[in-house]
Design a protein around this nucleic acid. Structure first.
Lengths: 336, 336
DNA sequence: TACTTTAGAGTTATCGGTAACACAAACTTA
DNA sequence: TAAGTTTGTGTTACCGATAACTCTAAAGTA
C-alpha cells in the first residue's frame, strides 16, 4: 500500500508536506503542491482512513440500525438517512437486527469497537435499554427512530401512533363496524403500546367494548409460519367484521391467513393498517393505511444526529419529534 | 476512552500483557489474566478496532454493493451475504448504488480509504470496469454478483439468464403466443444482454421474427415516471399478446402501465418475468417467473470472497458459478 | 542597516494497538 | 549441580496519519 511516506520520498519533501497537500491546510507553494499531487496521482495514493481516524479521534462513520431490512418502511427510511449523511460527508453503515436482541447486541459491540461517531437507532424494544446505556456510557451520540425506550432520555423521531390508531378505528366505525380486532407488535415496543392505547381509546369513545381475545400481540417482523395468526383467527367466533393491523407486515399476513381459510378482504373482513406496502403492492393499492413519512424518519433523524455530533460541546435539550400520520382511504373497508 | 494503557496501569502490568489477555495469545498466568480481566470489566474497556486494523493490516470489514436496496432480490441476497460473513467473524457494510455510476464511484472511494478486506459487488454495468480495475490495482479482492464485466477476470456468481429467458419464451409459445415483446434492462449489463440473447434464440427456435420495436431497453431500477413504458406500449400496435420482463421491477411497472390504460394481466396481455416479487406479493402470487436463488447468490458469493481472502498467498483460478434458474408457473399467462 | 514578520518547509510526539525480541525466574534433565 | 528449557512478563519499534512546534530564508519595515 502506498503511504504518505512513499509520496514524500518520491517528491523529495517531508511527509507533513504531503499531509498538508492532502488536507489543504497550512502554507504550501504552488510548485510543491503540484509536484506532490503529481506523485500522488502517479502512485495511485489513497489515504488510510484508519490512520487518520486514530489520530483525529473521529471516524466519519455513522451507523443505522433497523429491525427489518425487507420492510419498505425501513428501506425508505434508510434512503433518507443515507442522503442526509452523504450531504454532510459522513459514511453510513447499516445493521439489520430482525427485532432480535442478540443481533442487536452484536452490532452494539461492533459500533463501539469501530468508534462510530453516532448511531441512528430503531431499537428492538424496551429491552434495548442496556444497549442504549452502553452507547451513552461510551459517549456515542444516538437518535432513536420510531420507538422510545423507557428509562433513557434521548433525541427521538416518532410517528403519531396513538392518533393513527384512533383514526383507523374511527374510519372503521364510520363504516358501520362495531366488532374490530387488533393484531399488533409486542407490548415491549413503544409504538405497539401507543397503537394499542389509541385503539382502546377509540373503542371507548365509540362505546365499544374492549375484548382481550380480539387482540393478538405478536411480532412486527415477518414470520415463516402463519399458524399463530391463523389460530387467533380461528379462536374468534364470530369473526370480527374488521381488523386493524399494527404494521404492513402484519396486514399482509392477515390477508394470507384469511385467504388460507377461503376468506377475502374486504368482502369477508375489512382490514386497515399502519405503513404503506412495498412498491410492488402498487399493482393494486387497495389497503386503507396510515401512511408514515418513512423517508422523513431517516432524513430528519440523521439531521438531528449530525446536530448532536457537531454541537457536542454545548449540547441542547433532548428533542422529540412526532411526525404526523396521514390516513389514505382505499377499498379494504367494506361498509356494513 | 479507555485504552489498554489505562488497564495496564491499573492492573500493574505492561500494555503487552493486556493485549495478550484480550487476544488470548502468548502465555499468561491465571492470576494475571484474572486481574486484567477484572480491571477491563471495571473500566468498561472496548478495544479500538482502528488501532488494531492499522497494525494488523486488516480491517475485518467486508463490503456489499447492491444496485437497488428496495428490490427483494437484493435484500434477500444481502441476508445470505450477511449470514456467511457473520459466521466467519467478519463485519459487513452495505452500499446502495441505485445503478448509478457516480454513487458507485463514491463507494469505491470509501472502500479503498477504509481498507476493506474484500468486496461483494453487483456492478452497475459494463462501465463499472474502471472501478473494478481500481480495486484490482489496490489489491482488494472482490466477487461479482449477478453481472459480469467484460475486460476483467474475477470470481463471479451468475444466474442462468439465457436459459431463463429461453424457458420463459418457451412457456409463452407453448400457450399459443406468437407475438412476444421484451422489456429489459440496459444492454450495458451482462445479465440484460444474456436475457435478450436467450429471448432472441428462443424466438428463432420457434420460427418467430425478432422485431426491435417490440423490445424496450431501459433501466432495471424503479423509475418515478412510467411514461417511457407507457409510450412503448402505445407504440406497439397491435399490442403483443405476451410480454417478457427482464426483472421483477419491470414486471410491476408493466402491470401498472397496462392498468393505466385499462388493460389487465393476463386477460389482455400475458406477462412473465425474472425474479420473485416481494413477500408482499404473496398475497396473490400470480406471476409466472424465473425464480433465482437470491439468498444463494449472497451466501455463496460471500463464501467465495472469504476463500479468496484466506488463500491470498496461493490464489486458485477464477471461479465462475452459474446458479440454475427455476421457472414457477402461475396464472399470468393466458392460453391463446 | 538592523530588526521583525512571514512564507514554506521540516521534526517530533502521539493516536491505540501488536509483533518480535529480550530477560529473569522456575523447572527439567543428564 | 550445571546446562538447557519453559513460563511469564516487559521493552522497543512500528502501523499511517496529524498537531504542535521549530527552523530558515526571504520580504517588509523603521
Amino acid at each position: 500500500m502506498v503511504t504518505i511516506y512513499d509520496i514524500a520520498e518520491k517528491a523529495n519533501v517531508s511527509a507533513m508536506t504531503v499531509s498538508r497537500v492532502i488536507n489543504n491546510t497550512g502554507r504550501i507553494s504552488d510548485k510543491t503542491r503540484a509536484k506532490v499531487k503529481r506523485v500522488m496521482e502517479e502512485l495511485g495514493y489513497v489515504p488510510n482512513q484508519m490512520a487518520r481516524s486514530l489520530v483525529l479521534q473521529q471516524t466519519n462513520l455513522l451507523f443505522l440500525m433497523i429491525t427489518d431490512i425487507t420492510n419498505p418502511f425501513y428501506t425508505t427510511l434508510a434512503r433518507g438517512a443515507e442522503d442526509a449523511a452523504k450531504k454532510h460527508g459522513f459514511r453510513l453503515l447499516f445493521g439489520n437486527t430482525d427485532e432480535n436482541l442478540d443481533k442487536e447486541n452484536d452490532y452494539i459491540d461492533a459500533i463501539l469497537k469501530t468508534r462510530a461517531d453516532g448511531v441512528l437507532f430503531a431499537p428492538a424494544g424496551d429491552a434495548s435499554l442496556p444497549h442504549l446505556e452502553m452507547l451513552r456510557r461510551h459517549g456515542v451520540p444516538f437518535v432513536l427512530l420510531d420507538r422510545e425506550v423507557p428509562g433513557i432520555e434521548s433525541d427521538v423521531v416518532l410517528g403519531d401512533s396513538k392518533e393513527g390508531a384512533r383514526q383507523l378505528v374511527r374510519q372503521l366505525v364510520s363504516n358501520g363496524h362495531r366488532d374490530i380486532a387488533l393484531i399488533n407488535g409486542s407490548r415491549t415496543i413503544s409504538s405497539a403500546r401507543d397503537r394499542l392505547e389509541g385503539y382502546r381509546e377509540a373503542l371507548k369513545l365509540n362505546d365499544l367494548p374492549y375484548d382481550e381475545a380480539r387482540v393478538l400481540e405478536t411480532s412486527f417482523g415477518p414470520r415463516s409460519d402463519l399458524s399463530e395468526v391463523e389460530a387467533w383467527l380461528d379462536r374468534m367466533r364470530p369473526l370480527p367484521t374488521a381488523i386493524v393491523a399494527g404494521n404492513n407486515v402484519l396486514a399482509i399476513e392477515v390477508i394470507r391467513s384469511l385467504k388460507a381459510k377461503g376468506l377475502r378482504v374486504p368482502e369477508d373482513v375489512s382490514l386497515v393498517c399502519f405503513d404503506e406496502l412495498a412498491s410492488y403492492a402498487e399493482i393494486d393499492p387497495f389497503l386503507t393505511v396510515i401512511s408514515q413519512q418513512a423517508y422523513q424518519f431517516g432524513h430528519l433523524g440523521m439531521q438531528m444526529l449530525l446536530d448532536r455530533i457537531q454541537t457536542r460541546e454545548e449540547p441542547g435539550p433532548w428533542r422529540k419529534v412526532v411526525l404526523p400520520a396521514e390516513m389514505i382511504v382505499r377499498r379494504s373497508v367494506q361498509p356494513i
